[in-house]
C-alpha cells in the first residue's frame, strides 16, 4: 500500500458496519487534491454509506481502518468539525429544513467558519450568493424559500452544488448529484462543478451514469462492490462499464482473489 499523500483525502482499509451488519469491508482509496475521482457500482454496494461515514454520520460504526484528511485522521471528530476542516458532502437525498431559508442556512454555515466575534459581511455575502445562483440557474427567489422544502429533485441537487460553491470545500463528495437532473440541468450543474475544479480541491463523484462523466471528466474511475473497491481505471473504464455492466469486473476480482 502506498503511503497517503499529505494533500489528499485518504481512506485506508476501512471497515464499517451498521448495527451488526458490515457494509464497508476493507476499502482503500486516495483522492489527491486537484483530482476528480468517480465511483460507480451497483445499488447497495455501499457508496452512500462510504460518503456518510467520511462525513461522520453517527449511525455507522467504524470497526477498523482510517480516514485521513490532509494526513490527519478525522475519525471520531464531530461532523461539523469535519465540515469546517473542508469536507463537503452533496447528499443523494438532501433533507428539508422547514422555515429556514436557503439564504439564512448558507449564511449560518459560513458564519460558523468565522472566528468568534467576527460577523459575515452581508452585502458581500449576497453579492456572492447571487452570482453563484445565477451561474447555476437557480432563480433568485429561492433565497427566501425554506431549504429543500417542496423542491423538485433537480432543484435539490442544484442547491447542493450552490452550497458547495458558497462553502468552497477542499474535498467534496458528490453522491448521485446527477440523478433526477434533466439534460439541461445536468449541463448546468456539471459546468458548476467544473468551475470549482482546480488544484485546491479533490472530488469524489458517485454516479450510475457514464453520461455525467462526459461533462465532469474524471482523473480516475473506481468500481465498488460489496464494500470494497474492486477495480480502478481511467475515464474509459466508465464507458466499458456502461457498455458491459459490472459482471466482468466482479468475475475478474474474484478470480484474482482465488489466484492469490
Amino acid at each position: 500500500m502506498s503511503a497517503p499523500s499529505s494533500s489528499s483525502l485518504s481512506i485506508r482499509d476501512l471497515h464499517a458496519s451498521i448495527g451488526d451488519k458490515p457494509i464497508l469491508k476493507g476499502l482503500t482509496l486516495d483522492i489527491p487534491k486537484g483530482e476528480v475521482h468517480a465511483i460507480m457500482g451497483k445499488n447497495g454496494a455501499g457508496k452512500s454509506t462510504l460518503a456518510k461515514i467520511m462525513a461522520g454520520h453517527p449511525d455507522y460504526t467504524v470497526t477498523s481502518g482510517d480516514v485521513l484528511l490532509d494526513g490527519e485522521s478525522i475519525l471520531g471528530i464531530e461532523p461539523d468539525v469535519r465540515a469546517r476542516l473542508g469536507l463537503f458532502l452533496a447528499f443523494q437525498y438532501p433533507m428539508e429544513i422547514p422555515g429556514v431559508t436557503i439564504a439564512n442556512f448558507i449564511r449560518a454555515a459560513l458564519q460558523a467558519r468565522l472566528p468568534e466575534g467576527e460577523e459575515l459581511e452581508a452585502t458581500d455575502y449576497y453579492a456572492k450568493l447571487y452570482s453563484k445562483m445565477d451561474a447555476l440557474s437557480v432563480p433568485r427567489n429561492f433565497t427566501s424559500r425554506s431549504v429543500n422544502e417542496g423542491f423538485s429533485g433537480g432543484e435539490k441537487k442544484r442547491c447542493e452544488i450552490l452550497q458547495m460553491a458558497m462553502l468552497e470545500p477542499s474535498y467534496a463528495v458528490l453522491d448521485e448529484t446527477d440523478s433526477g437532473l434533466d439534460i439541461d440541468a445536468l449541463k448546468i450543474v456539471s459546468a458548476g462543478v467544473n468551475a470549482l475544479r482546480g488544484p485546491n480541491i479533490g472530488m469524489l463523484v458517485i454516479t450510475h451514469y457514464q453520461r455525467l462523466l462526459d461533462y465532469i471528466v474524471p482523473d480516475k474511475v473506481h468500481v465498488m462492490s460489496e464494500g470494497r473497491i474492486i477495480h480502478s481505471g481511467d475515464k474509459d473504464l466508465a464507458l466499458k462499464l456502461e457498455a458491459e455492466g459490472y459482471d466482468w469486473v466482479e468475475k475478474e476480482y474474484s478470480a484474482g482473489k482465488s489466484a492469490v
Partner: peptide, 19 residues
C-alpha cells in the same frame, strides 16, 4: 436533519437552534 446541517459546518446546538 441535524446531520445534514452539521455537514454544512453548524454545531449540533447551532443546528438545533436554526431548526
Amino acid at each position: 436533519q441535524i446531520f445534514y446541517m452539521q455537514q454544512r459546518g453548524l454545531s449540533e446546538a447551532a443546528a438545533m437552534s436554526l431548526a
